[in-house]
Design a protein around this nucleic acid. Structure first.
Lengths: 236, 236
DNA sequence: TGGCATAAGTTAGCGCTACTTACATTGCGA
DNA sequence: TCGCAATGTAAGTAGCGCTAACTTATGCCA
């Protein structure tokens, strides 16, 4: 047994600032909030270096623990990533809900703000957004990912369906909702990537989305025979 | 010096079948078509195990060479992946061009078939499709990737712009083309992932795309004041 | 046709990573 | 306060990307 045990990782306090908002960090042998700290660190590292460059060892050193510590909280590296993805879906849903809250149900502004929140999330963390909707061929994601992911998609789709019901849109509300979600997801995927930059100016992305929402939803005919919007609104 | 040199990798011939269509494989110390074989192997392995699980060593063993061999042809692992991506963009463009060739310029069928080819490519190789449009935050892709990628996108967009010109569509053709491409890309991204499966039946994807093309392009007003299609066609 | 520069392979080895095993430390409840 | 479960560490293994130094085959040229 060692007579004078050196307290390792004295610099841990420096790395804990990121997790401070989540739990009380106690300096010492036990980290106190390692689970949350590792998720935070992984999310940040994936965002800055990409998923393929992300290493568990990096996350450990930023959290200030040894490389064996994560296995007390996660079964393996993929399990940690799954928790990052689930947290991402939770954040995306929260952001969309917050954006919607300021506008009445069934209003165009509400639908548009949800779309903008979706896009803003993808722009803020493109690498996270990508792994959220990706699936590795070999393995299946955890139930946590499936639950949070389908909850997120279900919410977004439901908001569009509600717009259709409130405004008596003719035709299949599910189809329309799926189309709009698909489009917003497409914009978000492309602007987060490299291909878009050469083609689209960032200022125009919002106009692109508004115009698409107009053509895919707002201008759709209503059950009473009227038309939601004059189509000319879409390209003035 | 060894007196009796054993010829290593006698089983190489077995692994060469995949590259046989590309170059003449000569059994022996020199592979003969290693560059192409490695690209093939990488593309296949990324497709079956995902990018994050793809290892250069696996590609080497399927090609039947040592792990140092790739560095005679590629600067590093990322360089090999870049070549896979460039080949992917080339294939995607080829498929789209072939699909378009059977229909007159400016016809709805031509636009739809290009969209279907795009979707079919993404369904056939989802992992490849994903890395084609992804970018790792830390590093920039090679000029090869940028060239093939922007050529692919430029072709797809140009076809929609041509439709607009042939049919005298009113408004910005660039905007419309971008919208349609974004939508098709969104469908392809989502069906390749896990989120869609729970929501959309695969049979309906084609109807989804057709209906979106109707609303985003075919039903748009024309310069002479007419309307391309009656909007009701979109949801009969 | 011989000879040689060079292209294109190989083996050996380094540092990093994911993960496991065995051990150390701590907090908490009986 | 004791003991145990939770949570950390250190050490070790296998596999990975990549490099350095060496070996083999090929094409070209006197």
């Amino acid at each position: 047994m060692p007579t004078a045990t050196v307290r390792p990782h004295a610099e841990r306090a420096l790395a804990m600032t990121a997790a401070k908002r989540r739990a009380k960090p106690k300096a010492g042998y036990h980290h106190g909030a390692l689970r949350a700290s590792l998720i935070d660190a992984a999310r940040h590292l994936i965002g800055t270096h990409g998923e393929s460059r992300f290493s568990l060892a990096d996350a450990c050193s930023t959290a200030g623990v040894s490389t064996a510590a994560p296995y007390r909280h996660f079964s393996d590296k993929d399990d940690l990533i799954d928790h990052v993805v689930a947290e991402g879906f939770g954040d995306l849903t929260s952001r969309a809900r917050e954006a919607a809250a300021h506008h009445p149900v069934g209003s165009e502004a509400r639908v548009l703000e949800i779309g903008r929140a979706y896009l803003a999330f993808g722009l803020a963390e493109p690498a996270l957004f990508r792994i959220m909707f990706a699936q590795t061929p070999g393995r299946s994601r955890s139930d946590l990912v499936h639950a949070s992911g389908s909850a997120c998609c279900a919410y977004v789709l439901d908001e569009v369906v509600q717009y259709c019901h409130v405004n008596d849109v003719d035709g299949s509300a599910d189809l329309v909702a799926l189309q709009l979600w698909t489009f917003v997801h497409g914009v978000t995927s492309l602007v987060g990537g490299a291909a878009y930059g050469a083609v689209v100016a960032e200022v125009e992305v919002d106009r692109l989305m508004e115009s698409a929402a107009e053509r895919l939803l707002f201008s759709l005919p209503r059950r009473n025979g009227a038309r939601g919007h004059d189509l000319d609104d879409a390209h003035r």
